[in-house]
């Protein structure tokens, strides 16, 4: 609790954010450049899939982020409902569109990857389908958050929804896997594929790192702008009151 309340002051939070931001922005740019260079130039083409395997370096980290950000939102929602800490609400609100963006990126790259591999833009593959459902969970969360006149009500309702959704994700995942094996016994992509070669693993991990830091940068900037907006609103009201 004490750690929590140290950041309860928005000014202190802003100060901390301002010191950290340049550093993590730098890490984001560097790791993104390194990751992309390795993905495009140093990593080998796949012996079966050829050059299209390079889509993986965007697709897989995006899918990681889709799940990671939803978990973060669920965690923030628990904090928001139990301790009623405004930072948790702001973090959830700032994270949702980024998470939805990564989920969409995972779906789009999955579709691009699928075309040469499966001969179709969309295949009801178990993993892709789960990601699609996750995308709808994000949309519902964002829609609910913005559906109320008072932002605070939207935040609380969305927090409850995020937790319910998070509890349901394993159930949904399990059911989609089950459904998929029933209807499509021969899947093209095998879950237990050959262990990945280090020349491909490294760029993948670096891209994952870059995406994580990218998320951190964007989420901090979004929280910051929310705070500044709230301050502006307050000053405007004070001006009206004093007039």
């Amino acid at each position: 609790m004490s750690v929590f309340h140290r950041f309860a002051n928005p000014n202190r939070f802003l100060k901390l954010t301002n010191t950290v931001l340049p550093w993590i922005s730098g890490i984001t740019v560097l790791s993104l450049l390194a990751g992309l260079y390795m993905a495009f130039f140093t990593s080998p083409p796949d012996y079966q899939q050829g050059e299209t395997v390079r889509i993986m370096y965007i697709h897989v980290p995006s899918a990681w982020m889709a799940m990671f950000i939803y978990s973060s939102i669920a965690f923030a929602s628990v904090c928001s409902l139990i301790w009623r800490h405004p930072l948790a609400d702001l973090a959830a609100k700032a994270s949702a569109p980024i998470g939805a963006g990564f989920t969409f990126l995972a779906l789009a790259t999955g579709s691009l990857w699928g075309k040469p591999m499966w001969g179709a833009w969309w295949v009801w593959d178990a993993r892709l389908t789960s990601v699609l459902i996750l995308f709808f969970l994000y949309l519902g969360h964002m829609a609910l958050m913005n559906a109320f006149e008072e932002q605070e009500r939207g935040n609380r309702a969305a927090a409850v929804l995020a937790i319910v959704g998070f509890v349901n994700i394993p159930i949904i995942k399990f059911s989609v896997d089950w459904w998929n094996t029933l209807h499509q016994p021969a899947s093209v992509m095998r879950a237990d594929g050959p262990s990945i070669d280090p020349s491909m693993l490294w760029p993948l991990l670096i891209m994952g790192l870059a995406f994580k830091f990218f998320y951190l940068v964007v989420v901090l900037i979004r929280i910051k702008s929310e705070l500044i907006e709230a301050k502006l609103r307050k000053y405007r009201r004070a001006v009206v009151d004093n007039a």
């Binding site: 002051n9 000014n11 004093n242």
Partner: peptide, 15 residues
């Protein structure tokens, strides 16, 4: 009550 306006500003509020 104007006198109250600045009272709650001691600990700056979030929202």
């Amino acid at each position: 009550n104007r006198a109250l306006i600045n009272l709650d500003d001691e600990e700056e509020s979030w929202v």
